[in-house]
């Protein structure tokens, strides 16, 4: 097995009525991490996942998932899936839903029973597994949804808005579950609008807009271009030093008795002469910290304004919101 579990090239989907959901999506998902697919409503995220799960037929989609062509049914035995707005039969009990999904995946009854108990415990539903789905809250249903996605011990788990309807405590527990999946070596593919949560757990992300992948990579790679250092000093620098630093392009502000200096550098090496100069003038260095663009900012930059796709690739570092700059 290669290091890439999903490798899609030129995925296209036009629905009846002419809606072009995917316009040649190419995507690589690395093995064994948490991958986030972001995008506004209608970007084509769910369509892409549904193509991978053989729920939607693409007009064109080259590539592989777990080494098999996209749409290869037997491969889905190694894949788990929690759809958005998942509906499970209300006449079944929580544990029965997991056994039902395990059965559909071809897991033996004995194995499914053992697995069910483990999964119920993992999602904190061990005391509720014998209650019918109709009696569950939305958050509890979502937990069972997460458990059923793992019923076949999958290599890849697709989760479409997994924290939808889950309370903050439940979200925290779900994050732990996702991280545990990663530790177990599974690949977790998440569609979500909750960028803050994704940022906390995702190893890599792709941003979709209007049926195209706009950005793709690890969060570190994607935010690299916005990496900067902020230096806070106490007391005023001399006019001469300020002038020299400004001439070199550094931004300096003076607020509430402190100087704020922002240096756009991905490498800390060029900072060192500045520190030497400040120390030489006897200026007290209060704080030096590295700042990066948040996932939300990256997302908004990618889909927020203007065109789509390639036009944004390789764009210059974004201008930072003032609040962020003086933080």
């Amino acid at each position: 097995m290669s290091d890439v579990v999903i490798d899609i090239a030129d995925a296209r989907k036009r629905y009846r009525g002419g809606v072009e959901a995917l316009r040649g999506v190419s995507l690589q998902v690395p093995k064994g991490g948490i991958f986030g697919l972001l995008g506004p409503n209608g970007a084509g995220k769910s369509t892409l996942v549904k193509i991978l799960m053989s729920i939607v037929h693409p007009n064109h989609c080259a590539g592989t998932m777990l080494g098999a062509p996209i749409g290869h049914k037997p491969t889905l035995a190694q894949v788990g899936y929690l759809p958005e707005h998942a509906r499970f039969p209300e006449y079944l009990r929580g544990g029965e839903v997991i056994r039902y999904v395990a059965g559909l995946s071809g897991i033996s009854r004995a194995e499914a029973c053992v697995k069910t108990e483990q999964l119920l415990e993992m999602v904190g539903m061990q005391d509720w597994g014998k209650q019918k789905m109709g009696t569950y809250s939305k958050g509890m249903k979502q937990r069972i949804g997460l458990a059923q996605a793992l019923a076949n011990d999958p290599e890849i788990v697709f989760l479409d808005e997994p924290t939808d309807g889950v309370d903050p405590k439940g979200r925290l527990e779900m994050r732990h579950v996702l991280m545990r999946m990663r530790e177990e070596g599974r690949t977790v593919f998440i569609n979500s609008h909750l960028l803050g949560e994704l940022e906390m757990i995702c190893d890599s992300v792709a941003i979709m807009d209007k049926g195209e992948i706009v950005q793709q990579g690890t969060i570190a790679q994607l935010t690299e271009k916005s990496r900067r250092y902020e230096l806070i000093t106490r007391g005023s620098m001399s006019e001469g030093l300020v002038q020299r630093l400004k001439e070199k392009g550094f931004q300096i502000r003076h607020e509430m008795g402190q100087d704020f200096m922002i240096v756009y550098e991905s490498d800390p090496e060029p900072i060192q002469p500045i520190l030497d100069a400040l120390r030489g003038e006897g200026v007290t260095i209060v704080e030096l910290r590295e700042l990066r663009q948040s996932l939300e900012e990256l997302f908004m930059e990618s889909v927020g304004a203007g065109g789509v796709g390639g036009s944004r690739k390789g764009s210059t570092p974004p201008s930072l919101p003032r609040k962020e700059a003086i933080k």
């Binding site: 549904k50 799960m53 053989s54 729920i55 049914k73 037997p74 491969t75 889905l76 035995a77 894949v79 899936y81 759809p83 958005e84 707005h85 998942a86 509906r87 499970f88 039969p89 999904v101 559909l104 995946s105 071809g106 059923q148």
Partner: peptide, 14 residues
């Protein structure tokens, strides 16, 4: 219905 069919159809069964 959406959300119901997805689970069944995404399994390794024709």
């Amino acid at each position: 219905k959406t959300g119901s069919i997805d689970v069944a159809i995404s399994k390794p069964i024709s």
